[in-house]
Write a protein that binds this DNA or RNA. Structure first.
Lengths: 337, 337
DNA sequence: TCGCGATCCTACAACGATGCATATCGCCGG
DNA sequence: CCGGCGATATGCATCGTTGTAGGATCGCGA
């Protein structure tokens, strides 16, 4: 059996409370006592029982991160950054996958699985504006992704609209006029897909280019295969375009693959722009020009924001929204001008 | 404040232990009582306090997974599978990143951070054979990656040697003779890098091909950038080869990128073979022929194996080794024959 | 009517830690 | 020489749950 405070106390010849004080860095302890206790701790290999500690203290030292799936590189890289940021604050991270499914996202917010954590960072894909009430939970919550005005929680997110507007304008500035889009979600109201489409349309409008539904392709999920499928559809129906804006890098990479299979040259015939700046975007052939939405900043800030709320206990802070800066990373698939 | 068993009991007019019995599915409860209790639970939104439960029961309902980093797609996809498998067994998964660093791997095995879990699945990259003692831990442990004979824990792993031998033979069968390798770790004794090199050498030997150090390139980490760097080195020093075996897909993809920058055609001039069968291997240009080492099976089996040990409590099972089947996935970068 | 087992429910004591209140000591200033 | 204060160590209650043991209630046969 694992050693407890009592065992250590017996060995060191002090009360178990004193051991607790040593472990917790209580200042008023004579060096001699401290040393005796520490020796006993080492000898027994004592490790505090975290269940007991958190039962008593109300803190678990863990946070939860819920993303659609780690199989999508964007979320994997995001998760990596979140875990690293949490670790710096001495927190462990529990990762949940929702599949981007609304029902599972909502279920998770109710689930007792989270009672083991001090708070949740949620990246919802399926939730709708009317789900605001579900976000009114009795634990600290930071939502990643754009907020609607009445969502009650903290938000840390990217400038979806601004970034896609800038991306689209980048393509326009390089001389493209027929810019296809891959990744639309038609039944969505506030998700990234919808916001990115809005940015795209704003840019077109600002430059007097008509919006043409025929070159806007859906993709329910954002895997490579979905991008490939969408591009095949566009090609099959004979759509005309001189650029493609994939609403994320994996879509763009899947699409780029199909373009080249079809004998089209990138970027000569069709420029390709992605979104996310995944590690792999720098190593595709051709390398992928993309929008870096500030993923690492988002991860770090999400953890910080959650910690602020955890720190305050119940003290009410108003819901805050924090926005990352973005930038366009120019590579081969869509050269500037 | 969150509701407790007592609150529910008061509302339902029963003892708090009865509520506990209802929650835990104890069979001998009158339907009327059960219903009363359930109504009270709903009304108060009662959720069991997992810290208290696990303090009392000794089980936490969580497992830990330690991988080098989620930024590497292989580990991200593996983590996704592990989390999914754990969820099916009603376990949550806590993810740690070790950076593949020996010191951090060893530290993790001692860390109180794990006391919050029922067991650990560890994918060590930096540990050495002499670290066997560190694996003798007082909690259930499953190690991913090849075992040395005296490591005391369960192992679930891939057939590194067999798979690379088969991969190398596949290239040989397709007519290649100068097969470069990317990903060697010279200071390693038992890691995947060393084992894969062994498989490679066995295949060469079996076919009477001399091993040539000049076409074996190191890569300490296995990112795309490392593969690219290694390939640049090979090219710079004028190495001659007609195939490249990347010891994982990201290395192979990085290398393939550099090959094509250098004006070499894949597969005509140089065939490229990867290892892992990542999602993205199917969408590169050209698509990547690769060895599928049975990642999903490994994830599922690791969780099952850990659960068996958790179930037994302290009961001694001998350490077991379970090996996944592999297969070669033929794509464009290295066509068969 | 009583006895007896099955069924249903309850009381109490843990699990291992922390917070608070309190004891003990030595030392200083008045 | 005493009161009081800071430094050090302790004891007890408590967090919310489950395990164990035992008390109440019921139906049914004798």
């Amino acid at each position: 059996m694992a050693a407890t405070l009592r065992d250590v106390a017996d060995l060191a010849g002090v009360s178990f409370k004193t051991v607790s004080n040593v472990v917790n860095g209580y200042p008023h302890i004579r060096p001699a006592t401290r040393e005796k206790v520490e020796r006993a701790i080492d000898e027994l290999g004592y490790k505090p029982n975290l269940s007991a500690r958190s039962l008593r203290s109300g803190r678990t030292g863990a946070i939860a991160l819920a993303v659609p799936e780690l199989n999508l590189s964007y979320f994997a890289e995001l998760a990596g950054f979140v875990i690293a940021a949490a670790e710096r604050a001495d927190l462990v991270t529990l990762v949940e996958q929702t599949g981007g499914d609304r029902a599972r996202e909502l279920a998770l917010l109710q689930s007792p699985r989270l009672r083991m954590t001090d708070g949740l960072i949620l990246d919802p894909l399926g939730m709708r504006p009317e789900d605001a009430a579900a976000l009114d939970v009795p634990f600290p919550l930071v939502v990643l992704g754009e907020r609607t005005s009445d969502w009650p929680s903290d938000h840390v997110t990217m400038r979806n609209v601004d970034a896609t507007r800038a991306g689209t304008e980048y393509l326009i500035a390089s001389g493209r006029r027929r810019i296809a889009v891959i990744g639309e979600h038609e039944d969505e109201v506030i998700g990234s897909a919808r916001l990115r489409l809005r940015g795209y349309r704003e840019a077109l409008e600002a430059h007097g280019i008509d919006y043409d539904e025929r070159i806007v392709a859906r993709a329910a999920l954002w895997h490579r295969a979905d991008g490939a499928r969408a591009m095949r559809e566009l090609l099959d129906r004979g759509a005309e375009f001189d650029a493609v804006f994939g609403f994320n890098d994996t879509l763009a990479l899947g699409a780029m693959r199909v373009l080249q299979e079809a004998g089209l040259r990138v970027p000569e015939d069709v420029a390709v722009l992605g979104f996310d700046d995944l590690d792999e975007a720098a190593y595709s052939i051709p390398s992928l020009t993309t929008v870096d939405p500030g993923r690492e900043w988002i991860a770090r800030t999400a953890v910080e924001t959650l910690l602020e709320r955890i720190g305050r206990g119940g003290a009410e802070l108003p819901p805050r929204t924090k926005l990352a800066d973005f930038r366009i990373v120019e590579r081969e698939s869509a050269p500037r001008a």
